[in-house]
Design a binder for these strands. Structure first.
Lengths: 213, 213
DNA sequence: GAGGCTAATGACAGTCACTGACAATTGACA
DNA sequence: TGTCAATTGTCAGTGACTGTCATTAGCCTC
């Protein structure tokens, strides 16, 4: 698919502008806050016009999730790569845990990992960003459900199980995110451990009794 | 809490203005689409200034969810009223199914039920509204988790189970919504049945094998 | 390596959601 | 009836976007 032609000056320049805008935006968002940062300020920080910003990113929200999109892509890809013998929830579990490893490197190629992590935390505390984030993950889970359905040889629109399984999984991921975004330990190691322990809590939930009394 | 004093002319007028704005907004949203409706048009339809609109509703999104908020409130209340002997997921299940009954009447007091249902469908197909909706339900589920934790005598910040249980439940609700908002049958009866059947699918999901081969 | 083609940019004007400030109006109540 | 306070309209301003058009700057050919 990729054209073997090495990128010319034009392409390299575009890439640099995009990177600079992205980094400047995240830096400004995470220091001053999302709502307190204007698109003009981002553009000015990179010394381009506001109009140019909107040629690279569809909107202010878009640039905020540019790094997160990479993470989402990695997760979806990890789900696709899971061996067919794994049960659906097992495959999903392994996919998240595994993708957390490959994600670090991929993110670093665009923005410093620490900046991405700070952005995650900001997302949790900024209503507009949280809303957008939830919609984006909703889309990711829809795609995930289709993959799971295909794996199992089911029709996603007829059999409720693929979507329900992914929804259950997604619900747990959401709890993990919230906790991670609120807690002190903002590291990839921490979220890996948190994800694993929360996912393990699902099974017992449906059968065990909670109250000791 | 309520002042026994009957509402004067002033209060009645305010209520009428609010109702008119709400109804006009939903009517315009569901006919022309959310993005194709301006706040000015809503205000004009009720013959008040744009500024007045913003004195009744915090924003364009707010008015879109005014009816939905009633539904959310009813659900949370239903959870609170569940008898303590029910298991958490059992209580949640009964709460949704029960609240669907009381909701109809409550909604009708503000807007025609049919208008509310059309608005639900629009929410599913309008990105900005879907994002906002997901964030609002996220809040509802956070509150729900606290209620469940209290019921079970647990600390919501220490024990992961309340939040995980509600997240699992919430995930299934989301799938139900999506399906209902996409399908043909836009009735309360339909969503009740759908909710019940999808919730029943959770248990088997974790243990049963999907593939017959 | 000059010139034409096309993509990238900047400048500008306009729309729409929303907010603060101030003046005019209008119920409420003595 | 007159005063007080709440409601409203008007107006000006900000910030996120979008369309348009002229200018600039890589790229490619002859």
């Amino acid at each position: 698919m990729d054209t073997a032609t090495p990128p010319g000056l034009r392409e390299r320049k575009k890439q640099r502008t995009r990177d600079a805008l992205l980094r400047a935006a995240l830096e400004l968002f995470t220091t001053r806050g999302y709502d307190n940062t204007t698109v003009d300020e981002i553009a000015e920080a990179v010394d381009v016009s506001q109009r140019t910003f909107f040629r690279y990113f569809a909107g202010k929200e878009d640039v905020a999730f540019a790094a997160q999109d990479i993470a989402h892509t990695h997760f979806v890809e990890a789900v696709r790569q899971r061996p067919p013998h794994e049960a659906p929830l097992e495959a999903l579990r392994n996919a998240v845990l595994e993708s957390w490893d490959t994600i670090e490197e991929a993110i670093e190629q665009v923005v410093p990992l620490e900046l991405y992590l700070r952005m995650c935390r900001l997302t949790e505390s900024t209503p507009a960003l949280l809303a957008s984030h939830l919609r984006r993950t909703d889309e990711v889970f829809e795609e995930t459900a289709r993959i799971i359905a295909e794996r199992e040889g089911l029709d996603v629109d007829t059999d409720p199980r693929p979507r329900v399984a992914v929804a259950v999984f997604g619900g747990v991921i959401r709890v993990t995110e919230r906790r991670w975004g609120t807690d002190g330990d903002l590291s990839v190691t921490a979220i890996r451990a948190l994800t694993a322990s929360y996912l393990d809590a699902v099974g017992p939930l449906l059968t065990e009794k909670w109250r000791t009394g």
